[in-house]
């Protein structure tokens, strides 16, 4: 079943600017997809449409089989959790517990159900013990976890994440990627960080008002034209090995992850045996 389906979707802002043009996308339930593109490409607008906050100017969008229109936006939103780039936009209540519980309380769930969901979401996001903390005094990484817990308590079928690792320190970024890796929901991650995108998703959508590319990571890495057009830069280990391949004349496809890069080095260079030892 398609969790998300867009057919001929275009979106024009009130001032006449066209943000998105003729998008046709289908994302299966449980699939993890990275949405990349330059600044102003329409990534956030697309996330807002997928979240049921904007209704397409033309075309059709369905979430878990429910077609979005102006009347049923609230029903569509129950299937979707949207994490904003800046967690301060999302965190509203005076304490972490109250903020995490805000969504399920609005959905009218019983007190026991809400308490159970909040405890579980806080455990999953690693913010146990933060219940009474004041959100606006948390670090950015902690705020992002609180925002994520707030989404998970609503048990959405689809998670839409707008730059989830932006401005995080390296460990915060790593922790957040680990957290996302464990999720079973359908996930769309809008990001500039291709190393995060390649780590978390097998499929990449490259957007620049129109869809420039919709396919697997390997195809994108080899498609220099799309990378240039979308002003994307491959991760540094990938570029390093590309340069090495050019200089040595060896033939291999550029790696998408650190593990792939390591495998290439083991295979093409001198440390095959050492690599095997390392693995043992």
């Amino acid at each position: 079943m398609d969790a998300l389906r867009l057919e001929g979707v275009s979106y024009r802002y009130a001032d006449g600017r066209t943000a998105l043009e003729d998008l046709n996308i289908s994302i299966e339930a449980g699939e993890r997809v990275a949405l990349v593109g330059p600044n102003g490409a329409g990534k956030s607008t697309l996330l807002h449409i997928l979240a049921g906050l904007f209704v397409p100017t033309t075309g059709k969008m369905t979430v878990m089989g429910v077609e979005l229109n102006r009347k049923n936006a609230q029903e569509v939103r129950r299937h979707v959790g949207l994490m904003f780039q800046d967690p301060d936009d999302q965190i509203f209540m005076p304490s972490v517990w109250e903020d995490v519980a805000f969504g399920p309380m609005n959905f009218g769930l019983s007190e026991d159900e809400v308490r159970g969901r909040v405890a579980e979401a806080m455990r999953m996001t690693g913010i146990e013990g933060f219940e009474e903390r004041v959100p606006h005094r948390l670090s950015l990484g902690e705020k992002k976890r609180v925002a994520m817990a707030g989404l998970l308590t609503m048990s959405p079928d689809v998670l839409l994440l707008d730059e989830p690792t932006a401005n995080l320190d390296p460990w915060g970024r790593r922790d957040f990627v680990d957290l996302l890796e464990k999720r079973k929901e359908t996930i769309v991650i809008a990001t500039h960080d291709l190393s995060v995108a390649f780590h978390l998703a097998k499929r990449v959508l490259v957007l620049k008002r129109k869809m420039l590319y919709d396919g697997d990571v390997v195809g994108l890495i080899q498609n220099q034209e799309v990378l240039r057009e979308a002003r994307l830069e491959l991760p540094s280990f990938s570029r390093l090995l590309q340069r090495w391949a050019e200089e040595t004349g060896k033939e291999f496809r550029p790696p998408a992850t650190v593990e792939e890069a390591l495998e290439i080095l083991r295979h093409n260079y001198c440390c095959r045996d050492q690599g095997a030892k390392h693995e043992h």
């Binding site: 906050l53 959790g81 936009d89 999302q90 969504g103 309380m105 609005n106």
Partner: peptide
């Protein structure tokens, strides 16, 4: 601009204008 984002975030979490609390 910030207020618009906050309102969108509230809508995403089922806000309808009612203040809900337990008890």
């Amino acid at each position: 601009a910030r207020a618009t984002n906050i309102y969108d975030a509230l809508l995403m979490r089922g806000y309808t204008g009612e203040i809900r609390e337990f008890g």
